[in-house]
Amino acid sequence: MSKRIDVSDLNVFYGDFLAVEGVNITLDAKSVTAFIGPSGCGKSTFLRTLNRMHEVVPGGRVEGSVLLDGDNLYADGVDPVLVRSQIGMVFQRANPFPTMSIRDNVLAGVKLNNRRISRSDADALVEASLRGANLWKEVKDRLDKPGSGLSGGQQQRLCIARTIAVKPDVILMDEPCSALDPISTLAIEDLINELKDQYTVVIVTHNMQQAARVSDKTAFFNIAGTGKPGKLIEFSETTTIFNNPVEKATEDYVSGRFG
């Protein structure tokens, strides 16, 4: 169920603008990989290329390849819709569908593409997904209430439940805790730790302590200046990145000397 991702020589463009240049990286299955780096360095952009979400922006395109267990996501004839159902995504701001109940939010992805699901299977899946997102106990008595009535942290966990309900191979998280208070952040971080038993997790974070707490490996991205493309500077075990990084820029960043 969990798959690894190999990225080779990936350039990301918006129109003619080269946003991220020459990324080579391998994201292991059943592990948590964190992307850190200053704002605008392209880490979110790169994350979005992993499930072809960057194509949603007009002019977004890539050169190079992204292999999901050997299958190129950018090969001819690959449907981005299929890619996204295999590689789920959690966004910076919790975005449960406001017009749907909690239950329907969890099932939103499952009911896509005309798939049918029996009521009992749906009930079981809702419970399993909400338990998987550590939210079941809090919402089991109000599954028919709108998802937008939950707190920010609960909404974010609802989004995670919605993502794992479609049983993806990989879960991408784009600064999932940046709008949350410390307690909710802790709940999400605990959840990430549990998720890696079953999924490949990739998380973009601005919070270096968070990267250190949750990830097995860390990738440091940086940008030479405005208008220049972002680059992957260093990728290694998280302990190495934070304790004895090879690159000077990485050391400066993790020790708080810039960024």
């Binding site: 569908f97 939103a108 992805g109 896509l112």
Partner: peptide, 11 residues
Amino acid sequence: LHQEAALALGA
């Protein structure tokens, strides 16, 4: 935000 959420689920 919600349109991206839908697309990211494979819509």
